[in-house]
């Protein structure tokens, strides 16, 4: 069980943890994670935000990581989304993409729909789940003092990395995203591959 304190505000904590976002190809899950990353990157072409495919972000990131081994791929997702696709952690553990880092922004609730509690609010431990799925390098971040080491780990680890970022229930930053998924996908591919 994970009963870590939740003191960090995601609006400050996510940018602090990620640092220079250009270091990564970033895939973000829907809702809060998309707003965290959209606000941080302004949807620069190294960013792909999912919408309406709850649970899908982890595998998009895994696919990128498998085929772009020289790039660092960062998945930013939420506890609600990850709970919907726990099998994704098992698949990542089985494939072991060396260049994939995962940040789960855990606010213990479905913030987008009115703060209903997720299972992590009852102590379900996503860090332990990641470890059980074969992701050997994991961190629990509950304070700013732990940010620097975790931020470096996102960039340096030789294998999949999982960082559980415990945050308060404060809302994510306001950000109005591009809902045309085909446009953002095309921009991403063009930046990465030079083609649509």
């Amino acid at each position: 069980m994970n009963t870590a304190p939740r003191l960090l505000d995601r609006s400050r904590a996510v940018p602090l943890l990620i640092g220079k976002h250009e270091d990564f190809l970033i895939v973000a899950g829907l809702a809060g994670a998309a707003k965290d990353i959209g606000n941080l990157t302004k949807e620069s072409p190294n960013t792909f935000l999912l919408g309406g495919a709850m649970g899908g972000a982890a595998m998009v990131a895994a696919g990128l990581a498998i085929t772009q081994p020289d790039k660092r791929v960062l998945l930013v997702t939420g506890d609600g989304e990850l709970l919907m696709a726990l099998g994704s952690l098992a698949t990542i553990g089985a494939v072991q993409p060396k260049n994939l880092a995962i940040v789960c922004v855990d606010n213990e609730c479905y913030g987008e729909t009115g703060d209903q509690p997720t299972h992590t609010s009852f102590g379900i431990d996503l860090k332990a789940t990641a470890e059980a799925c074969g992701i050997k390098t994991t961190r629990l971040v509950t304070s700013e003092a732990e940010m620097a080491e975790a931020s470096a780990l996102l960039r340096q680890s030789n294998g999949p990395v999982f960082v559980l970022l415990k945050v308060t229930g404060a809302p994510p930053p306001q950000y109005s995203r591009n809902w045309q998924a085909s446009e953002t996908k095309t921009a991403f591919r063009k930046a990465l591959l030079g083609k649509r």
């Binding site: 895939v27 792909f48 495919a53 649970g55 899908g56 972000a57 982890a58 595998m59 998009v60 990131a61 895994a62 696919g63 990128l64 990581a65 498998i66 085929t67 772009q68 696709a85 099998g87 994704s88 098992a90 698949t91 089985a94 494939v95 996908k185 991403f188 591919r189 990465l192 591959l193 083609k195």
Partner: peptide, 23 residues
């Protein structure tokens, strides 16, 4: 590539395509 659910399959198919492959 063996995945746990078809949802996962859709996602990883997109990731591979976005990285320039033909899954």
């Amino acid at each position: 590539l063996y995945v746990c659910t078809e949802d996962e399959g859709m996602g990883i198919n997109a990731g591979l395509y976005m990285a320039g492959l033909k899954p």
